[in-house]
Design a binder for these strands. Structure first.
Lengths: 223, 223
DNA sequence: TCGTGTTCTCTTGTATACAACGCAAGGAGG
DNA sequence: CCTCCTTGCGTTGTATACAAGAGAACACGA
């Protein structure tokens, strides 16, 4: 189809040039360009991405491992998470995030702390009308925390888990007042990590994500 | 099997018929048929497995995600874990296993308990000279524990993590006296789960895996 | 003898062709 | 009118052909 009139999703998918099929498809799913439950036909995606089926298959296979697409009786579809699964994912994430800050409190270097303080300082200057900037700032902070834990296995697991709750709504930080509250909690976590107080850091982290989970559940209940 | 004379690894790889390339390669790596660091050339594996490169590539891609193979500058090799990485994996596993039994204590059904008791009862009748039977019994018990936690996300993560420490030695349960000790700890865990005492179950589980980690580190230090 | 440039081979990445399978629609028989 | 079978199409799974890149070996010159 020359002019490419109808396909709503082809626009931004065509746009990104240097990214791999995996990254492009992943971003398309995470951004909601593909609705949950939408069928993913290899030949169609190959057409849109302007590559052959082979790299598309590879990308889909990775996305299946990421838990972003699932295999139906026939073909793959964008994975639809149930409320129960979201709950499971959050509970798992709470466990892992708490563990990682406990490690961070024990193992953090001066550099880790510097980086965390830097990200914390930028928190209040983020434009609250720009959701993607908010998401990015939050992501950067938590990634810095993961790195400060100095456990590659833990941070790998967390980066994969984090993918699965980036789906709609992309963040729970849009709730009124939540941004500032989250910033305060982050500061408390960094303080505890600086004091090498693992228990306290883990406690606050738990609370922080419990709150986030509660907001998401509320959002899911009232769409 | 006709000509396949030299290849030491082709024997059991050719043997299994119905298994997918992924399963066959995974088992070959886990069983140590492929040495850590050994190069995995697609065409060679395709030859051995009697399939084309396409399914082999797919299998290797999954194995890379499992962390069992890693990508060098040129091609893939069986992943060699450093002592630090093993430590990271164990620490992560301790966190997750503790969390799962805490959940199990809260959510276990009567059926879960029945299954666990059944596996526990079989523990002492396992042939201690049969390493693979030991590994299987242990695996079955822990999988039952994962299921009793009723958190799909947690059990998925754990089943993948468990893959990564199945490498040599396949189990730490071969140490003198460790089998009985582990059985006793398992029984304590199940008791705590039955009493719905999550804290105690988590505590014992932590200890259990700390011990396992200590044995493995000792084994790694003196090969 | 050592360093460097070039070629050559081996391996991966990509595209395409073919086979097998499942699903759906349509027709025939009860 | 309903049910069951058959046929056709769409999609995935597999094989193979081709292109591009990285290393190694070799030859040539200093």
């Amino acid at each position: 189809m020359g002019a490419g009139g109808n396909a709503t999703s082809s626009e931004s998918l065509r746009g990104r040039v240097k990214a791999s099929p995996y990254e492009r498809l992943r971003d398309a799913i995470l951004s909601g360009e593909f609705e949950p439950g939408a069928p993913l036909v290899e030949t169609a995606l190959a057409d849109i991405l302007q590559v052959s089926r082979t790299p598309v298959r590879e990308a889909l296979s990775k996305l299946e491992y990421d838990g972003l697409v699932s295999r139906e009786r026939r073909g793959l579809v964008v994975r639809q998470r149930t409320a129960d699964e979201i709950l499971d994912i959050y509970q798992t994430r709470i466990v892992l995030e708490s563990a990682v800050v406990r490690h961070a409190a024990e193992r953090r270097t001066a550099n880790d702390l510097l980086l965390l303080r830097g990200l914390l300082a930028r928190w209040d200057s983020v434009d609250l009308s720009d959701r993607s900037a908010m998401r990015e700032a939050n992501q950067a902070f938590h990634e810095a925390l993961w790195r400060a834990g100095h456990n590659v296995c833990l941070s790998d697991l967390l980066s994969r888990l984090a993918l699965q709750v980036h789906r709609f709504p992309p963040t729970t930080l849009g709730e009124p007042g939540r941004w500032a509250e989250a910033g305060a909690e982050h500061a408390q976590i960094v303080d505890a990590v600086e004091r090498r107080d693992g228990d306290e850091a883990a406690r606050i982290t738990s609370q922080h994500f419990e709150e986030s989970m509660a907001i998401r559940l509320r959002l899911m209940a009232t769409p």
